Simulated scan of single mutants.
Amino acid sequence: MTTGRGLRGTAAVVGIGNPRYHKRGTSEDSALALILKAILAACEDAGADPRGIDGFVSYANDLNEGLAVGAALGVREVRWSTMVWGGGGGGVAAAVNAAAAAVATGQAECVAVYRGITEADDGRQSYGKGHFPPLLTAHGIVTPAQICALRTQRMLEADGVPRSAMEALTAVSYLHAQSNPDAAAFGKPLDPEVYADSRWIAEPLRLYDCSRENDGAGALLVVPAERARDFAQPPAYVLSGVQGAGPDWSESLENDAAYTSAGFHPALVNRMWDGAGIKAGEVDVVQVYENFTGPAVASLIDVGLCPPGVAAGEFMTVDNLRAPGGGLPINTSGGNIADGFVHGIGLAVEAVRQIRGSSPNQVAGADVSLLLGGPMAPLVSATIFGSAATR
């Protein structure tokens, strides 16, 4: 059932593809080849003909345009091809939302959402290109880690969020990765002492507070909800989707009033919950984009899943965040930190797996799965997925 002008009940993800990640700089394939493999895997998963794809969406300055991807696949027609602006993973959920909007309005019938990178094609830190104006670089701020470190330090000092909240997110990501054979950290558990002794990247962020950077690609197929049952897998319906930047956010040269926020401002958060017709307490599982652990904690606070201040430490514990039995399992495939990092496309895939019941760390009876993208990036976005029971 649709509600107003929202996305609820209009679109569904019916196919996912996320081939194993490569250590950065080691893939024998180009980024385009990896994207094509991911889309073909999503089509095989869905039982769909790749030539029937008629829309393409990517984000984060992906160098592989939808028209080129479509030509390589031999599609019959390209009806929709778009890119979400905004650096890094802020566009991961927004890309899903754009695809949902396309099929909901009849602009396309099957849209591939994808992201792929290789160090050979994209260089290092491709997510930060074009987002460091002179005011930052003149003062030696040249990496996302530095910007997020400044904001995280303020969150710890001024807001009173304990560092243990960040540590718990890393710990549970590595714990989940041990059950995921495809994770980069599979078979490599992280001892608390190793985390505590790891080098500073940009204080207060240590090595294991930072996401990986991999060669790889992922893809999702989005179709109109009325077609969802025509495919091989249980659909994950789009219940709500939001994206954007607040009035003093975006490319605002670090003048943000809510300096410790992840960027999910109250109006956006309200639209997210209202669009889905649910409350924060009804979420079963979360995939939160963790470029770094501090911004990820800030995301959970922004959307009302984690309490602010000192109480965040009581919520952010391994026992509460772990699957399957935690109060709110988070990053159940290992996330950007322990699974693999291709601008968070793996988080979107895992959000859908949880609705299907096919995650390596499955939450029993997961009906509502939340994807959060891009904390402390110029653009943020979110998608709420639901099972058939939520329609």
Rank of each mutant, 00 (worst) to 15 (best):
V242F: 04
L221V: 04
G216L: 05
S179T: 12
T260N: 04
A184M: 15
L220M: 15
A257C: 13
G218P: 00
Y174W: 14
V222H: 02
A228N: 02
A185R: 10
R206W: 01
A225W: 00
A177T: 06
F186K: 10
D256A: 11
F231K: 04
A228F: 00
E226Q: 14
L221C: 13
K188R: 15
H176R: 08
I201C: 11
G187E: 07
A202T: 03
E226Y: 09
N214P: 14
S179L: 12
P247L: 10
W200E: 01
A177G: 15
P234A: 14
I201T: 10
Y174H: 14
Y195P: 03
V222Y: 00
E193G: 12
A184P: 08
N214L: 07
E213D: 09
Y195S: 03
G218Q: 05
C210T: 05
G244A: 10
D197I: 06
L190T: 03
D248C: 10
Q233H: 06
L207I: 08
S250Q: 13
D256N: 13
C210P: 10
A217D: 06
V222Q: 01
S250N: 12
G187D: 02
P204S: 09
A183S: 14
E203N: 12
V222T: 00
L253P: 02
R227S: 14
P192L: 05
P234M: 12
A257R: 13
D191G: 08
A202C: 15
D248H: 07
P247K: 10
A184R: 12
W249N: 02
D248S: 11
S252F: 09
L205P: 00
N180S: 06
E203L: 09
A202H: 04
N180C: 09
V242P: 00
Q243F: 13
G244E: 13
R206A: 03
C210A: 13
H176M: 08
V242E: 10
S211H: 01
S198G: 07
N255D: 15
L175T: 02
C210I: 05
G246V: 01
V222K: 03
P224Q: 11
S211L: 14
L190Y: 10
G187I: 06
P235L: 12
R227Q: 14
Y237V: 01
Y259C: 04
P204W: 00
C210F: 04
E203D: 13
R227I: 11
T260Q: 06
G244Y: 03
G241C: 14
G241E: 08
A245T: 02
A185G: 09
P235R: 06
Y208M: 07
D209I: 02
D215E: 08
Y208I: 00
A228C: 10
Y208T: 03
T260K: 05
D256Q: 15
R229K: 13
A245C: 15
A236T: 07
G216F: 08
R199M: 12
Q243S: 15
Y174E: 03
E203T: 02
Q233C: 03
E213Y: 11
F186P: 04
S261N: 07
P224N: 08
R229S: 15
L221F: 13
L239Y: 03
